[in-house]
Design a binder for these strands. Sequence first.
DNA 1: TGATCGTCTGTAAACGTTTACGGATTGGGG
DNA 2: CCCCAATCCGTAAACGTTTACAGACGATCA
Lengths: 350, 350
Amino acid sequence: MADGPTINTIAERAGVSIASVSRVLNGLPTRQETVRKVMAAADELGYVRNAVARSLKSRRTHQVAFAMADVGNPAYLAMLREIQPVLKAAGYRLVLHSTDAVAADEIDVLHSLGERYVDGLIMSPLRVTEAHLRMLATARAPVVIIGSVPEGTRVDNVRADSRTGVRLAVDHLYALGRRRIAMINGPLDTVPGAARGAAYREALHDLGLPYDESLVQIGDFYRPEGARAVAALLDRVPDVDALMCANDLIALGALDVLRAAGKRVPEDVAVVGMDDTDLAAASWPSLTSVSLGSAERGKAAAELLLERLRGDAGEPRVVTVPPRLAVRASTAGPDYDRRQSGYDGEGGGK
Amino acid sequence: MADGPTINTIAERAGVSIASVSRVLNGLPTRQETVRKVMAAADELGYVRNAVARSLKSRRTHQVAFAMADVGNPAYLAMLREIQPVLKAAGYRLVLHSTDAVAADEIDVLHSLGERYVDGLIMSPLRVTEAHLRMLATARAPVVIIGSVPEGTRVDNVRADSRTGVRLAVDHLYALGRRRIAMINGPLDTVPGAARGAAYREALHDLGLPYDESLVQIGDFYRPEGARAVAALLDRVPDVDALMCANDLIALGALDVLRAAGKRVPEDVAVVGMDDTDLAAASWPSLTSVSLGSAERGKAAAELLLERLRGDAGEPRVVTVPPRLAVRASTAGPDYDRRQSGYDGEGGGK
DNA sequence: TGATCGTCTGTAAACGTTTACGGATTGGGG
DNA sequence: CCCCAATCCGTAAACGTTTACAGACGATCA
């Protein structure tokens, strides 16, 4: 596989200088005759511009990185799905990092911006540490954070409003007559865990319901642990009548356990998930879920970043995406499902 | 944001030549004293190696591209999940392309290898055209194809065995006593569509069942269209007793329609999906599905590519990943589910 | 003491582009 | 016929590295 042709090869064959070749390839004003010769030579040789050399000179890579906490989590995938086409349309390639929610990995990604292999970064850290903030302050390329960030941090960021999201869900459960509403949460030292926990407490308060420690169960954000958490809760509080789960995976775990325990959903226990992933619509009973707008957040983040890349040097911006409650059978009952599950609904494929 | 420090800045500050700096940074034998000075200067300046310049000189980008047909399809995501860590462990970054299964886009990606912004490519085309083959033959970097490729194509490739997969499913349905087994397929001009269709026919033949045109319904590979296809089939053949669906999304659409039509699953109609995505375990009734080993295929592809990148110039290799039937409630019935859905099963989170 | 060897370091070229600058060519006007 | 402006093009430097080569230096040996 002989070394591919370069601008030099073309120059030689066309009998012009490399400067002319470059000019032609970049569409700068050039005599017709020269254009013809260069184009002909380029075609014959099957020339393709070397992106690396180009980037070195132009200081632009036309690549953007997206660092997601977890390639397995549908919420991040939803972001990815939106980010990808936006970047592509703007002529950027997407470099994907998976940090497994390990802070050190995230710091690494931030640090590696110094390598200048990307023009910008979109990142969704699960926790934001001191080290994150320090790195952010000195980042060598524009960064957009998806998720909340301490007040005053000078960085573009797109946040979900999980407080309102939880509120929507709890209000919905309350309206259905539920009064013993438990919360199954992930770790409290994660950004979403903390926010959702606080919002739950607040929502109860505003409804005049007492905050009962024994109704709160902490696990992680995955299905098996979610199931274990619900089992533990059920042991402790057999007469619970609603579960507010901190994400859909936990909620699916909850459905497993409730089914095994012979509880009817939603007659005995209503269940709400969060993130409104594909799984929510697919499960049975289909899962009422709070959409925190993952898709919209991804899109917004990509657009913010693109503005920066176009040279916008204004103040850091904060975009907040409003939540939405997707009501399904796990709270509204099978009637809901019978009404909705016709084969002409559901969206899905492109 | 002053321009970051370069090897020159360091050389100046440390009072040595750029060659020495480079040597130190690359761990080549150097006097202790020099190493110390360079390291000190580098630290103070917060130096980070410029990846672009490095790539230009070394002709290695340490990036690999993965071109998937559809960022939304869980089967490809499963591949992505496996590919990512393998590459990361080997020190490669992942550039993600979504081709939306458009041949022109795929050709584009192949063509863009000439830009040399990646060291290699993993691609999973839905259809393989003449143009694909031509581009593959002259690709400017190692390529691994996930999916089948015409005999004799000189390219590494990792394939699923959908023939055996369909066979497993049809045999399973037959063993359950089903005799009117329909197939809901995607377009026949796609690689998977064609393979699955042929396999279905063959499986029936080997079981001594007649091939009945009216039992075959073609749509696309997504849920709404899958639902429409099943509805059409049901109109035509009301007494069908099993559905072999060409993927899980189609199968979910099938469940929607069957439920709306008042058919019990699996008592009246047994349903099998393909790809064994997360959705299969999450749906209700949980979906029996043929795993074509997406995850394993992704992993194998990444490993094949890494071998090439390490310089292996041997003959093209073909890896075939064996399918597996994941039996769940949509064929085995709720008993199965009651046995399995305990809260300590299911896997899932990492 | 001078030749020889080995170790370490600096100079410079190279990777494949883009682009500032100035020289050559052309054409038109006086 | 000459001059000037406009147009086009080539030379060379630059982007930030890596690395071949050769020079400098000190030490070792005869």
